[in-house]
Amino acid sequence: MIVAKGLTKKYEDFVAVDGITFSVKRGESFGLLGPNGAGKSTTMRMIASTSQRTSGDLTILGKDPNKFGPEIRAHLGVVPQQDSHDRELKTWENLYIYGRYFGLSRKFLKAKIVELLEFAQLTDKRDTKVSALSGGMQRRLTIARGMVNEPEILMLDEPTTGLDPQARHILWDRLFRLKEEGVTLVITTHYMDEAEQLCDRLIVMDKGKIMAEGAPAELIKKYSSKEVLEVRFGSKNNAEAGQKIAHLGDRIETLPDRILVYSEDGEKILKQIHKMGLEPQTSLVRRSSLEDVFLRLTGRTLVD
């Protein structure tokens, strides 16, 4: 559905997206994972035909966004990073007028809005002004709004940033339903758990480039070990302790606040550390995640 080859976006001297190549298949849930400033949003905007590429090729459903901007946008549902509701209007009016922007008939929208309010669990907030909705509700309304034109591709830019855990889970549940209905999802996120939950396949981006591509489990297997032991010796002692335990496990990463030891068996490593006479303040064994993949690829953490 989406094919990008050598896609590049430059703003004067700054290269936001640096020659990336990827493709998204129908019905797939595709992720762009990376820290802030990696070029995820810029890539999204180019796909959404609201930003013109500097060079490279891009086709969405076989159409070039430079030539068929409005036409491509009719195929897409867009959920921007910041909620941008019409604050002068009520909840249902926001859905209504957004549908009208696509030229959809009043009759069609009347039925559609009932369905969408139900989907977003906002039926009882129909006549509330959007400014009175909570953050989670506004986010769900944005997703419902993105669905009003029955898009084939739904573009979600940081869909759960700024939401509390409960609101996130409700939102994820809604997105799963859409996926089940066959909607292609393109999601940017800097949350690894979100990427693992929602994405069939993803690209890891950093500084405008693709660092790795694959299914979340595949990437973890390829770039990390099965388990990770996190130990903290206090910020002053971490560097010194890191050198002492450097020979343990497959690999270690010493971060300012903690040391990560990668291995197949975290508990075993922890025992070895105790045997050496070292007493970490806290210790935690967990499964490897995309966060570790990113750390491995870039030497930095996802959320600074």
């Binding site: 959404a48 609201t50 901007g69 946008r73 867009v78 941008s84 957004y98 922007y101 696509f102 030229g103």
Partner: peptide
């Protein structure tokens, strides 16, 4: 209001 950004993400020009 970010209104125009929103509108221009639809099929309007």
């Amino acid at each position: 209001g970010r209104l125009y950004q929103t509108i221009l993400a639809t099929s309007l020009g």
